Simulated scan of single mutants.
Amino acid sequence: MPQATIALRARIREEKKKKTKLPKSQGLIPAVLYGHKIVPKNLWLNYIEFEKVFGQAGESTLVDLAVEKEKPVKVLIQDYQADVLTSRINHVDFHQVRMDEKIHTEIGLKFIGEAPAVKELGGILVTNIHALEVSCLPQDLVHEIEVDLSPLKGLDDAIHVSDIKLPPGLALKAAGTEAVVLIQPPRAEEELAAMAAKPEEKLPEGAKEEAKPEEGEEVKPEKNDKK
């Protein structure tokens, strides 16, 4: 099923010798567009529009980027920077792709269904991998890769990277033998109690516990006798 087109507008950002801060009231953030055999462009984006597009596309879905009156081009949101305090995005990198060239990217995993080992046996579901590195042509990109948890029926069962059925056109960047998600046996009550109990610190054999001064008692430094 073809994905709906996600569109975003931008305008050229002129580089000036003297840098001036853009008023926040304008709601614009800087961006850069680059790609294979194209001249990089410095851009301005409307923050609200970009935030909406980023929520839909993430970093693995094509976006139709229209720079002013130019014809839209296919891009990926390659990278972004955000304020460390507010988490507000303050810079974006777009990668313009060629539809006849393969790209390498990460696609997030979406876990669906229910693991019988959790529901029926009380097992613990442990997730090790949340995204896969793949290569594909741009038109074969998907927003996410689904992983069905229903095969996890027994304790110690696992789903490995090699077990995941990839959508057509996608290929793993590296061989996948690592466990994506696995089931661990439930912990016994005795084990949980032992983990919760804080072990007492023991002195080495033969060592004496240092006497603590009484409240209000003056502590005198030890004298070193020199002969």
Rank of each mutant, 00 (worst) to 15 (best):
Q78L: 00
D79Y: 04
Y80D: 07
Y80F: 15
Y80M: 15
Y80S: 11
Q81E: 12
Q81T: 08
Q81D: 10
Q81F: 04
Q81Y: 06
Q81A: 09
A82I: 00
D83E: 13
D83T: 05
D83F: 00
D83R: 02
D83W: 01
V84K: 12
V84T: 06
L85Y: 13
L85V: 14
L85Q: 11
L85P: 02
L85H: 10
L85G: 08
T86L: 04
T86G: 01
S87G: 01
S87K: 14
R88H: 11
I89R: 08
I89F: 12
N90S: 13
N90G: 10
N90I: 03
N90L: 03
H91A: 12
V92H: 12
V92T: 03
D93L: 04
D93E: 05
F94H: 06
H95Q: 05
Q96E: 11
Q96V: 07
V97G: 08
V97W: 07
R98H: 13
R98L: 15
M99R: 02
M99A: 05
E101A: 13
E101C: 08
E101G: 05
E101N: 08
E101W: 04
E101S: 11
K102V: 07
K102L: 09
K102S: 10
I103C: 09
H104V: 09
H104I: 10
H104K: 15
T105L: 15
T105S: 06
T105P: 05
T105G: 09
E106M: 09
E106D: 08
I107Q: 10
I107N: 04
I107E: 11
I107F: 14
G108N: 14
G108M: 09
G108Q: 11
L109T: 08
L109V: 07
L109C: 05
K110M: 10
K110H: 14
K110R: 15
F111A: 03
F111Q: 01
I112D: 04
G113Y: 14
G113M: 14
G113F: 12
G113Q: 11
E114K: 14
E114D: 07
A115Q: 10
A115C: 06
P116S: 00
P116Q: 03
P116L: 01
A117T: 06
A117D: 04
K119D: 07
K119V: 13
K119M: 11
E120C: 00
E120D: 12
E120K: 12
L121D: 01
L121I: 01
L121S: 08
G122L: 02
G122M: 03
G123E: 06
I124N: 14
I124L: 14
L125V: 01
L125P: 05
L125H: 04
V126K: 12
T127S: 02
T127N: 02
T127C: 02
N128Q: 11
H130F: 15
A131M: 04
A131S: 15
A131H: 11
L132P: 01
L132H: 03
L132G: 05
E133W: 00
E133L: 02
E133Y: 01
V134L: 09
V134R: 01
V134G: 01
S135P: 00
S135K: 09
S135D: 08
S135I: 10
C136H: 03
C136S: 08
C136R: 02
C136T: 04
L137K: 06
